[in-house]
């Protein structure tokens, strides 16, 4: 009975706290981080209310442009065109890097391959290599997993690993990163790419070389921080300068030591 009463009271309170509503929209990569930060922030700040939605970096930025979000979370820097569009609309904006993300290339734990060069990755993802033995592994067919075409991670990986070439059309496109982990963990010949935060013991992260095989670096928060690991990218918040007053407390919270601790705890790379 007491539980029901407290439940009802909390409902009433929740419906009355209408104070500060912030909308955050955009990249699915940043989503889990923002979700966690928002959760903690709301706990620490009575009355604050944040709404977190995914949709992709592009969606967040266009939402910022047409005023349907307060913060656009993005896993890439604004494109020049987007910058121009915002400037043309007379909307001055601010950019804040809230964390870094390292993209890990993962394979099934039974795969004996433990390192690949960028060129080999490009070959695998564009369909040049079809069997693991072509890159020094066992005689098993390579099963390529990727994110969906509209994801920011898909684009980033295409740009920085595939040298802007198209993915092989037989690649399995997963609607979300979690699904890639799930599938790679149960598929022998699988290869996939995920944000460092998603790494679990069920999959094996590969060492990657960007200097044609001279040095291989394993993805880790340390290696991403000192820029040794090549496939890293900053994660951004974008907001309009005129909304700065409303947004600032939350953004400052994310950049504060407590907020950065959350970054680390969620598996992303903190700024310092």
């Amino acid at each position: 009975m007491k539980k029901i009463t407290t439940f009802i009271i909390s409902l009433v309170i929740a419906s009355q706290l209408n104070a500060q509503k912030l909308k955050i929209k955009g990249s699915d990569t940043v989503l889990p981080l923002t979700q966690k930060e928002a959760e903690n922030y709301m706990k620490a700040t009575p009355g604050a209310s944040l709404m977190v939605t995914g949709g992709g970096s592009g969606v967040g930025i266009s939402a910022l442009l047409n005023g349907t979000t307060d913060i656009a979370q993005s896993s890439r820097k604004l494109k020049l065109d987007e910058k121009v569009k915002l400037q043309e609309a007379g909307k001055a904006f601010k950019e804040v890097i809230i964390a870094h993300d390292a993209i890990s290339v993962i394979v099934n734990p039974t795969n004996k391959i433990s390192q690949l060069t960028r060129e080999q990755l490009e070959g695998i993802y564009t369909g040049k290599f079809k069997n693991w033995k072509e890159v020094g592994g066992d005689d098993i067919k390579i099963v390529v997993y990727s994110r969906e075409t509209s994801s920011g991670t898909y684009e980033f990986f295409k740009e920085h690993v595939l040298n802007n070439k198209n993915y092989v059309s037989s690649a399995l496109l997963m609607p979300a990163t979690g699904a890639i982990v799930q599938s790679v963990s149960q598929t022998k010949g699988a290869i996939g790419y995920i944000g460092l935060a998603y790494l679990t013991p069920n999959v094996k992260a590969l060492k990657v070389s960007y200097d044609k095989g001279k040095t291989y670096v394993a993805p880790s928060i340390e290696a991403a921080k000192n820029k040794k690991y090549p496939i890293t990218r900053p994660l951004y918040y974008y907001f309009l300068t005129k909304a700065e007053a409303a947004v600032k407390p939350y953004v400052d919270y994310v950049l504060s030591p407590i907020g950065q601790k959350t970054v680390l705890a969620t598996g992303y790379v903190p700024l310092k």
Binding site: G54, G55, G56, G58, V59, S62, E148, T149, S150, S151, S170, L172, L173, P175
Partner: peptide, 22 residues
């Protein structure tokens, strides 16, 4: 594996810029 029409719409519509070609 295969891709179906409904799955394509569900997976991509959310991130396709409104009014664009995609």
């Amino acid at each position: 594996p295969a891709r179906t029409i409904p799955a394509t719409i569900a997976a991509e519509l959310g991130e396709a810029p409104y009014g664009g070609l995609h």
